[in-house]
Design a protein around this nucleic acid. Structure first.
Lengths: 335, 335
DNA sequence: TGGTCGGCTGTTACCGGTAACTTTCGAAGG
DNA sequence: CCTTCGAAAGTTACCGGTAACAGCCGACCA
């Protein structure tokens, strides 16, 4: 009678049932070509007779490999990440990796906590949103000696792989589109104001300043963005700056909320007020008029991350570098 | 020289540095009250000097406890689940559980695969969307002898904990609201048509039949729902049944897409066509007019799941039962 | 006929923690 | 002064797999 045991079916049970040793059963599962065909069959049938389920912890401990990768995203409810996630998952799961998802709630402290958690799980790589991390997080990452991906934004000093787009440049380009269309009093509306939102706003400022225009018409909040907030903030902005000609919203949710508010006020978009968002979510194509937006190559980002990460996991050397996947301006009908 | 070793810092290293055995260090981390205060301090400082990160696999293997729970959701991009998830996560993380998220893509085959995967990880409980599973999945769940939660919909034959709402009843109630407002030629527009969508549609049929009305005006598709699809399908329905007075959409995305299409056609909602959705997502309150919808108690569902699951994890006996958390009809302005 | 080789299976040790039990030691009590 | 007791730390074995290396055996070749 063993002192303790989980009661679960183990390799040992299968081995006894078949009359071999457990290493043979282990091989049959991982390297079937090393096991004779007849044994293979007997092992298989024993496995599903007894309902054997491998213990991942035991395997990971013995082999030093977890076959898993952690993907941190800011928020589960933000559909910006679902396409990125799809690309990553498809690429990695083909190669036998399990993708563990965690969400940071846009906080680098929470990110640090999650990095620690997933390092305990022994993930073989980490994919992080953004390029700003706590000092301790950086230390953890360096010490872990595993591939790290920083994504969405670009950085001058990548830790390892960096795939994304230049958020500042994109904000500037969208603002320039307003200017090219003859709009002059263009405001900025932002929420949450995480690092990427700040970069976009800085792009707006740069473009306005270069054109010699005022950057006064700007309203931001640390609250999470939502349709409702877009509407409310639009109302405040119109109150405060009745002469506004156009508003660049830091993301599509705000822009859609602002558009709905315009509809309630029977304001014509874009004649009375031009609007633009950021990301190119589905909703921008559905509204009437469709919303102008910066279309970000999210699926491509996901695919690229998967490809480059697999290369690193298969031995490609650490060679920190950024990859800029660009963006596309879509005028929709709201600008 | 050991034959193999990961090179990572282990309990053993900390123990040597401090001059104790590893079990003492292990205790200092898990049961600090059993270790003297001075030792505790020396151990702590050794841990962050050396940068020790516990190996979760080793701990889980030795203790037979993974301190993790799997939450399967149909789709990451559907914000219906983010609130449920938040409630679950807050409740469980307080009690020291890590929540692992997987998405089934609305497929019970994929669900089966994920159940298998997470059982290998040794999760201590599983939370599943829906009550329909493959036969093999049921076998796996039964054999695993861990708490299982089925959520969103209710079932007569719960495996264990079942928390949700009566989707059929909700569909019927919303349809009845159309009828109470005097609408007669009420259609149904559905996409994806997973089990819950089918139940809602059945609710619509029941209400219509009980009122002696035709259930002919019904259009569904297996494609995933989206704003765009809502618009396109609305167009088809209006083509085919120009006499439609109202449309009950299987979810809020479709309803919003339909509303946008009405706006493009300059059709007045609800005078020319009444619309309703399902779930009570943010967008239903943002549009103009706001959309009628069935508000589902998602946060409450999440909290309830956390509470009941914790009870089971702490020893409450298996006692299969359903808990109906109800729903609320919101008329918005589109109905 | 002896040697070699390759296919298949076994032996042994080990991964990094934790459970359960044991030992040590100083303080309190009789 | 001896016993008892409890706090603090140690010993030993074990969780369930896998790496590395060691047989075994029949086929093939010289």
């Amino acid at each position: 009678m063993p002192r303790r045991s989980s009661g679960r079916v183990t390799l040992q049970h299968i081995a006894e049932r078949v009359g071999v040793t457990k290493i043979t059963v282990s091989r049959a599962l991982r390297e079937p070509h090393l096991v004779s065909a007849t044994l293979q069959l007997r092992i298989e049938s024993a496995i599903d007779e007894l309902g054997y389920i491998p213990n991942h912890s035991a395997g990971a401990l013995a082999s030093g490999r977890s076959h898993s990768v952690a993907l941190l995203i800011p928020s589960l409810s933000n559909s910006v990440f679902s396409e990125i996630q799809r690309g990553i998952e498809e690429g990695l799961s083909e190669a036998g990796y399990q993708v563990l998802i965690g969400h940071t709630g846009y906080s680098i402290l929470e990110e640090e906590r999650l990095i620690d958690t997933y390092l305990r799980y022994g993930v073989e790589a980490l994919i992080l949103p953004g390029s700003r991390h706590t000092g301790h997080a950086c230390r953890l990452l360096r010490q872990a000696r595993i591939p790290v991906v920083e994504t969405l934004e670009l950085t001058e000093t990548p830790l390892d792989i960096n795939v994304g787009l230049d958020q500042h440049q994109a904000g500037k380009a969208m603002t320039q589109t307003f200017l090219d269309q003859g709009y002059r009093r263009v405001g900025f509306l932002g929420a949450r104001m995480d690092h990427r939102a700040q970069l976009r706003m800085a792009g707006w400022e740069t473009a306005m300043q270069q054109a010699g225009l005022s950057t006064e018409r700007c309203l931001t909040t640390p609250h999470p963005s939502s349709y409702r907030l877009g509407g409310e903030m639009l109302a405040s902005m119109l109150d405060r700056w009745p002469d506004l000609e156009g508003i660049f919203c830091g993301n599509d949710d705000l822009a859609a909320g602002a558009l709905f508010e315009c509809q309630r006020r029977r304001m014509n978009v874009p004649d009375q007020l031009a609007l633009a968002g950021f990301n190119g979510l589905d909703i921008t194509e559905a509204t009437s008029p469709p919303l102008a937006t910066v279309v970000t190559p999210r699926r491509l980002i996901g695919d690229t991350i998967a490809r480059r990460l697999l290369a690193r996991l298969q031995g490609a050397p650490l060679q920190p570098a950024s990859e800029d996947l660009g963006f596309r301006i879509r005028r929709g009908g709201s600008l």
